[in-house]
Write a protein that binds this DNA or RNA. Sequence first.
DNA 1: AACATGAGCAACCGCCGACCG
DNA 2: TCGGTCGGCGGTTGCTCATGT
Length: 248
Amino acid sequence: MGRSPCCEKEHTNKGAWTKEEDQRLIAYIRANGEGCWRSLPKSAGLLRCGKSCRLRWMNYLRPDLKRGNFTGDEDELIIRLHALLGNKWSLIAGQLPGRTDNEIKNYWNTHIKRKLLSRGMDPHTHRPITADGANAPSYRPAPPQHIAVPTRAPATMFTLTMKTQPAPVESSDEGSSGATSTGEPRCPDLNLDLSVGPPAADTPTSHSQRPVCLCHHLGFRGGEACSCRQADSSACRYFRPLEEGQYI
DNA sequence: AACATGAGCAACCGCCGACCG
DNA sequence: TCGGTCGGCGGTTGCTCATGT
C-alpha cells in the first residue's frame, strides 16, 4: 500500500497557471493569509494541488519578491554561500531578500555553474580544477565558528557550527550533493553541524560578539545583495563575527 | 521561411522531517 | 511509541523562446 496522494489528481489542473488562477490565489491569501495549503485549493475554488498553490505563491506571486536579473553582488554572495552550505537553496535564499530557492537553484544551474567553470573552478567543490581534472585543496583549517540562523519562528534557532577536524584522507570522487558516499562533509576540514533548538549557552550576547548579518561578514555590507539593516539584526540571519585572521 | 538546437525557467515529483492524535 | 498528515525541500522535467543553420 503506497503513500496516499497529496490531492485528487484526477480533478486538478496541471501545468502553467492562468491569470485567473493567479488572481484567485492572490485574493484568497490576501483575505485569509497563508496556511493549510491542503485545503486552500478547495476553499479558494482552485482545481489545483495544495502543493502547487504553495509553490506558485512562494515562487511567483508573493508581493515581496524581487524580479529581474541578479546583480554581481548577488552572484558573489550565492557563490560564497554555496561554498559554505552546498545545495541548501532555501538557506541561501534566506540570505537574499526577495529571491526564492527555486529561482536561485535555476540561476545556479544555468549561470553560475558556467561562471565558475570559466574561472577554472569546480562548481561542486569550489576548488580550482587542475590540469588532470582533479580538484586542488583550497580550504584551510578554521577555528570553530557559529552561525545562528533565526527562522520565522522567533523561538527557534539554527546553529551552524563549523568545526576544525583532523584532515582525513580525501575521497577523489565527490558527489554533486556536496557529500561523499559515506556522508562525510564535502570539505574535509569543514564540518557543518546544523542543529535546531534554542540558542546555545554561548550564543553571543556581549558587544564584541553581537550577532551580525551573514551578508556583512561575507563582504556585502550595504550592497545590493543585502538589504537588511545592521541595527535590526533580528530581521536577518546572523552569526558571530569572525576573529581577526579567521575566514570562511 | 522553416527547422534544429540550446538556454532559461516554471512547475512537478518524491522524499524527509515535524507535528499531532 | 507509533502511524498518519502536512509542509517544505532538492532534484528533475518539460515547455517556451531565442538563436543559429
